[in-house]
Simulated scan of single mutants.
Amino acid sequence: MKIGLVSDCLAGQSFEELLKTCKELGIEQVELGVGNWSSAPHVDLDGLLESEAKRDEMKGMLAEYSISISAFNCSGNPLAPGDWGRREDEITRKCFRLSALFGLSTVVMMSGLPAGGPDDKYPNWVTTSWPPETQEILNYQWNQVAIPYWKELVKVANASGVRRLALEPHGCQLVHDVENFLRLRDACGGDQTIGFNLDPSHLFWMGADPIAVARALGDSIYHVHIKDVRIERPAAVNTLLDGKGVLDFAKRSWNFAIPGYGHDERWWREFLVTLKMMGYDGVLSIEHEDYTMDTVTALRKTAALLHANRV
């Protein structure tokens, strides 16, 4: 397995500075955000699509530092209502085209979340079966929005040469666990284009066991994010459902953490071994969102843990 980095972690650095930092830390691949929820600090999406010279310049810099691209990331909400969803869908399709131009077959993204009904303005995440209208919402979201969209999107991806869409399980997304991942894949005819970006952090705070998830997914793991979660003392009073901003970390029920600061190194060793047992030999893409720690320090600690324990 190669050690990688979600490039948004170093959004304040230029592309060359990012590559220098990666080289220093022994990071071998970068996952580049192209838009939507990413500010795309290192990718001029339209410029790269239009200019072979710009693409060659980026490829040359990557080669100079012996670093490759693991995937482009276009995470956003193309299922959102109205112009919002249409804009994010446009970025998604451009991401597919850019991946083809760079010879990449995997794109990292999320499933999206529709509105609760045709007249709603905002997406609606249903997390309980009561009151009864939640079932009407889910029926609308899945059958009228998500399934038709994803059936078509898989065809668009394949036409661009993208064969693996790695969906990240995340709160406020239809696919936030294994069950809903399989539901989407099955609704699309079992198409193996749809796979999983296994990010343990979100699974932790939603109450799942990422190691059990890895075993359940088997060869459906197409990409892996390395990020931990620390459950904090306020959870004992307030539950893990926490809407406070991530910078209000002293009061939150849970916080993102670097590996070893949420779950110990032994847990991470078992996680990495389990990935290997399931046949995964792809990137371990570090995504730093631990706001209690300096970014470069956090990346150095995480990279060291991965170097010591990858198999």
Rank of each mutant, 00 (worst) to 15 (best):
E136Y: 07
W142F: 08
H202W: 04
V156K: 07
I258C: 11
I226L: 02
K227F: 03
C172G: 13
S220V: 12
E179A: 04
Q135N: 15
D199F: 03
D219F: 11
A159L: 08
G195S: 01
E152F: 05
Y149Q: 13
A187R: 06
Y140D: 10
R183P: 07
R233I: 14
K227P: 01
H170S: 04
R163K: 14
D177V: 07
G195W: 00
A157L: 01
Q192H: 04
K155G: 02
P132A: 13
E232R: 10
C188T: 04
V162M: 06
W130K: 15
Y222G: 05
A146P: 01
Y140F: 15
L240S: 10
G245I: 06
N197V: 07
A235T: 12
I137A: 02
Q135V: 03
Y140T: 04
E152V: 04
E179N: 08
R185K: 01
F249Y: 12
N238A: 14
Q144P: 05
P200R: 06
K244N: 14
A208K: 15
Q135T: 11
L198Q: 07
L198D: 11
D199Y: 00
L138R: 08
N255L: 02
W130L: 14
A187K: 06
D228Q: 05
D191N: 00
V224H: 13
G189F: 00
A257T: 09
A146K: 00
D248R: 13
Q141R: 04
Q173K: 01
E168F: 10
R252W: 06
K244C: 11
N197H: 04
L217R: 06
F204P: 02
A208Y: 15
N238H: 15
H202N: 06
H176V: 11
Q144S: 10
G195I: 02
N238D: 15
L241V: 15
R230V: 14
Y222W: 02
H202G: 01
